[in-house]
């Protein structure tokens, strides 16, 4: 019960903070103004500073310009609704949900570059599933980085879910194999597989990731049911290359956008959607295991200008 009320409080303070920043930022930029060249320039600057990239920012501003030209929008205040509608079509409801296994364990493979926030994000997802009453198993396949398995074990204990670890420097694919066997045997609902951080340019490490995926698939043909790429919200244009590489190696199905509680806007996900068509599923907003929310395009648009 106390947890529940805390969550509500968290969401409402979070929202009011967003709202205030939103009114302060975009409000002053848009209120009482005509949609003209000057305003569009300022909007373009804002979008670029939110890491949307030149290409995506220009594309959106072109759409706005066209809308202004044929009278669909005229006042500054209308811009925000226009953007919301436009960006909502980027992320339809359907691809924001998790695809569960029809029967047996749902396997979620989580990957990303070093320091993106994979382990913390997994803890958040585990907590989410756990509090929905699902039986959760974690697989600590980061056998490379010092104390990575310990880090996930601490989370597992805090949340109260099970975990499979391997010996240090063990083959991560072997740990994944054990984890899937255990998931099947113990009849768990969700298996979350943590992997070592790797730069997308390291071919051998990307191949290792493919191998983990293949091992999982061999044991459970429909698995992994979700492959999440954890992306640091502060990442710039390089995130497009990351998305491409993880898509190629393990057919990523969605993005977990971590560290969105800073001042970075994570606008790169717009460019990623444009270029490689990878949807955002979750956002991370802090270091606690309950600091996770499903991605909401409307709030995202508001936050872009906050």
């Amino acid at each position: 019960m106390s947890l529940f009320s805390r969550a509500i409080q968290k969401i409402s303070t979070g929202l009011s903070r967003t709202r205030q920043r939103f009114l302060g930022g975009l409000g002053s930029l848009l209120t009482g103004r005509k949609v003209d060249a000057e305003l569009l320039d300022e909007l373009e600057a804002t979008l670029i500073q939110a890491d949307l990239g030149v290409h995506s920012a220009v594309k959106i501003c072109d759409d706005l310009r066209a809308a202004a030209k044929d009278g669909r929008i005229a006042k500054g205040e209308e811009v925000i609704d226009f953007l919301k509608n436009e960006l909502k079509t980027y992320w339809p409801e359907s691809d924001r949900s998790i695809s569960y296994a029809e029967s047996g364990p749902t396997v979620i493979l989580v990957a990303g570059i070093n320091g993106a926030g994979k382990t913390t994000s997994i803890a958040k997802l585990a907590y989410q599933f756990h509090s929905e009453g699902k039986r959760v198993l974690l697989a600590a396949c980061d056998t490379f980085r010092a104390a990575a398995q310990e880090q996930l074990t601490i989370w597992a204990n805090r949340i109260g879910c099970e975990i499979i670890t391997g010996s240090e420097k063990a083959d991560p694919a072997a740990v994944a194999f054990d984890a899937v066997s255990a998931a099947k045997a113990r009849d768990v609902d969700v298996l979350l597989i943590d992997t070592a951080g790797r730069l997308h340019t390291q071919d051998h490490l990307m191949r290792e990731l493919t191998k983990i995926r293949d091992v999982v698939r061999k044991q459970l043909p429909a698995a992994p049911h979700e492959v999440l790429l954890v992306l640091d919200a502060t990442t710039g244009q390089n995130a497009i290359n990351q998305a491409k590489a993880f898509l190629a190696a393990i057919e990523a199905t969605g993005i977990f956008l971590a560290k969105l509680d800073g001042s970075a806007k994570g606008g790169i996900v717009v460019a990623i959607r444009n270029e490689v068509n990878l949807p955002v599923k979750f956002i991370g907003l802090g270091e606690g295991y309950d600091d996770v929310e499903p991605f909401d395009p409307e709030t995202f648009v508001e936050a872009l200008f906050a």
Binding site: I48, Q49, T234, G236
Partner: peptide, 9 residues
Amino acid sequence: MTGQDAVNS
């Protein structure tokens, strides 16, 4: 790999 926010932090 940090984007535009690098200046703020």
